[in-house]
């Protein structure tokens, strides 16, 4: 769908809801500013991914089923997270295969966009940087990169900001070690991974860390905070909204 829709659904994700609401707010504002109406179904909770990745498919399905009912109109569903978008786009059809609501799940899946993908491919958003010069490191989540195949979108959005300089960190393509319940089930491996990621990002000397995934930000940011002297981190939506003057733009 390359034409700009009048209205979209916004699915905020449970993590954004509790930890990073500003990312969700900024994402909706960016879309509204582009002249698109946003519907935020209030009954939304979670896409079901944590249970799906833990093997609890019945539980994942019941939660996912509750979300399916929230998007009746044939309009895009925009999600500020690669992994939640991947859950709905890629895994809902698997999760509902052979179920009575299989067709509904397939329909929902076909309308899902990860936020940066939507901004670039559908809204063709044009950004004018109003901020001071800043250097950033970009961490793209593995689901955005490999499951959704949208790793280039965040780069192209940041590339539009004239005062933002991106600095590549070592092993940029490598996972940060979050992996949802992995971080708790295999904490030693997860810790080794995130500490390496922090080192590589710190070595760039950037002012800020940007990602399209709040799970990764919580992981990397939490590890930096524990060490002290954390590099500020932000979801791409919040960063873009800030840099482009918010409502004033």
């Amino acid at each position: 769908m390359a034409t700009k829709p009048d209205t979209i659904y916004f699915f905020g994700t449970c993590l954004v809801d509790l930890m990073y609401p500003q990312a969700g707010v900024s994402a909706m504002q960016l879309i509204q500013r582009a002249g698109v109406k946003v519907i935020f179904p209030p009954a939304q909770t979670c896409c079901g991914q944590p249970a799906w990745n833990s093997g609890y498919r019945d539980e994942a399905r019941s939660v996912a089923r509750a979300q399916l009912a929230l998007f009746p109109k044939p309009i895009p569903i925009v999600i500020p997270s690669g992994s939640c978008a991947g859950m709905m786009k890629v895994h809902y059809p698997e999760l509902f295969a052979g179920q009575p609501d299989e067709a509904q799940a397939a329909d929902v899946a076909s309308r899902v966009y990860e936020l940066t993908e939507f901004l670039v491919d559908v809204l063709h958003i044009e950004l004018h940087d109003l901020g001071e010069p800043v250097t950033v490191a970009v961490h793209t989540s593995c689901s955005a990169r490999r499951e959704m195949g949208v790793a280039d979108k965040i780069e192209s959005l940041l590339g539009q900001l004239s005062n933002v300089q991106r600095v590549e960190h070592a092993r940029k393509l490598e996972c940060c070690g979050f992996g949802g319940t992995f971080a708790v089930k295999e904490p030693e491996i997860s810790a080794a991974m995130v500490l390496d990621k922090v080192t590589h990002i710190r070595n760039t000397g950037v002012d800020r860390l940007i990602s399209q995934e709040c799970g990764c930000l919580m992981n990397i940011g939490g590890a930096m905070a524990k060490q002290g002297d954390a590099i500020p981190h932000q979801h791409i939506a919040e960063f873009l909204w800030e840099r482009t003057g918010g409502n004033a733009a």
Partner: peptide, 22 residues
């Protein structure tokens, strides 16, 4: 190896109410 996740002051659900979204 990480600080505890910080909960926001208010949830996206609460904030969305003031955003002029449907």
């Amino acid at each position: 190896v990480r600080s505890a996740p910080k909960l926001a002051e208010s949830t996206l659900h609460q904030q969305a109410k003031n955003l002029g979204v449907d």
